[in-house]
Design a protein around this nucleic acid. Structure first.
Lengths: 135, 135
DNA sequence: TCTACTGTATCGCAACACTAATACAGTAAG
DNA sequence: CTTACTGTATTAGTGTTGCGATACAGTAGA
């Protein structure tokens, strides 16, 4: 049992990024509560059969983002306050994501209504199931 | 005037991909009509101050996708029938994009309504302004 | 035929990213 | 103090990718 964390080495997405995104979602969805301990880089690396440095890279980015906090020599923990970026940054992120998605939709010739509906559905899924992890 | 095509070398996105995406949108939005001639690889390369092979790579992918058609020795033209990928593929693309965006929105803690509204707005912009270019 | 234009194919160079291996530094418990 | 555990930093190997230069092949018009 690996605490709900999985990676897929055959995926084009880098391992460290898969770790980062998975943890982001686990925290954002409340599946991992503030203050709880993350598996150590070596433990998780052993679980996933990858190098500890790769796990460390994923953790590091999450620490930078304020999602994880590290007590040196003790371990890594979920931060007490999920950061929830400053209003400005948050809007910028969302705006950029919306543009990318809209651009894709237009490019493949999808009807705007369909594109919007698809997002609504995806959002519903995500919020309902919290996070399943990878299926 | 380069027919509404621009690229930004300082952007992380590859030049050939910028070309590909711009043309896709120009065609999808109707700004470039079926049968109309594209600038030659050399002309466009000169305009953009890049290598013809880079333009050719962008064109090649568009030809493969059925968006452009080439008459060897004459030039490259917008295909008569914008392909609009097979239903399956198209849906898959859209679905994936929606999931990515929804995931982002949830991660940064955006309200679903706001996320949806943001997409609607972006779509409106894109369809109204045809293409904005790099900006 | 000759010339000037089309796109195509191939090669090489440079830059970048991912992953892993190894050695280092801090903390806690025996 | 010693040991065993934390995370960190540095380095190296490997593969991928972007880009450009050059040579090749087909078509149109004088």
């Amino acid at each position: 049992m690996s605490r709900g964390l999985f990676v897929d080495p055959s995926d084009a997405v880098p391992l460290w990024k898969q770790i980062e995104e998975n943890v982001r979602r686990l925290v954002a969805s409340g599946a991992m509560k503030p203050g709880s301990a993350m598996p150590s880089v070596r433990d998780l690396a052993r679980d996933l059969s990858i190098n500890p440095a790769t796990v460390a890279k994923g953790y590091q980015r999450l620490v930078d983002a304020g999602i994880l906090a590290v007590k040196r020599g003790e371990g890594t923990f979920v931060a007490q306050k999920p950061p929830a970026l400053p209003r400005g940054e948050r809007e910028k992120e969302l705006e950029g994501g919306a543009m990318r998605y809209a651009s894709l939709a237009v490019t493949i010739g999808a009807a705007p209504d369909e594109a919007v509906e698809r997002v609504r559905h995806a959002l519903g899924d995500l919020l309902r199931k919290k996070i399943g992890g990878p299926a």
